[in-house]
């Protein structure tokens, strides 16, 4: 990481380089895709089992993935590098999530509690992951501005989750 040196003291450069607008909008739109996924997969779960509602999108997603890889042949960033075995386990972590939320949704927490606590879990892990540069990803120190933005977004989410319904 680049550092700013002032009178012998070092300041992290990440403090003064916020994300570019395109990256910022891209991540926001990605969140919109999640709403479509919850909607479509949730519709499957109305008639089929919860396991089925997670199994089917993994099949149709795999089919598109194979087609995309065959047609576009994306370049492999580090063909010579030895990829750690655990880097392939993102799918298992994701599949476990479905099972956990299926269990907690049917407890006293209901959907709203499940989502709200899930947001907390996501943010705590992401902040720690950034701080440590976990799994070889770029290390970033969260700034005061990040924490204020985070607090506003989480409180808005909580208002929508608990009071936005009928």
């Amino acid at each position: 990481m680049r550092r700013l040196e002032i009178r012998g003291r070092c300041y992290a450069m990440s403090d003064i380089s916020p994300p570019r607008l395109l990256d910022f909008i891209g991540a926001f739109v990605t969140g919109g895709l999640l709403t479509l996924m919850v909607w479509f997969n949730g519709t499957l779960a109305v008639t089929g089992s919860l396991l089925f509602a997670s199994w089917v999108p993994h099949i149709t997603g795999s089919i598109l993935a194979i087609a995309v890889l065959l047609v576009f042949r994306p370049k492999i960033a580090k063909p010579e590098a030895k990829i750690p075995w655990w880097a392939y386990l993102g799918g298992i972590s994701g599949a476990f999530t479905v099972m956990l939320t299926s269990a907690t949704m049917n407890s006293a927490l209901a959907i709203s509690g499940t989502i709200a606590l899930g947001l907390a879990g996501q943010m705590v892990f992401s902040l720690v992951a950034d701080k440590w540069g976990m799994m070889g990803l770029p290390q970033r120190d969260p700034t005061a501005r990040d924490m204020i933005a985070l607090a506003l977004i989480l409180s808005g989410s909580i208002v929508l989750i608990f009071f936005g319904g009928a």
Partner: peptide, 16 residues
């Protein structure tokens, strides 16, 4: 591009 915390934050915002 933007780190884990920013990504999580914006995906949550977009989803909500």
């Amino acid at each position: 591009k933007i780190g884990a915390a920013q990504t999580a934050m914006l995906i949550i915002a977009g989803q909500m």
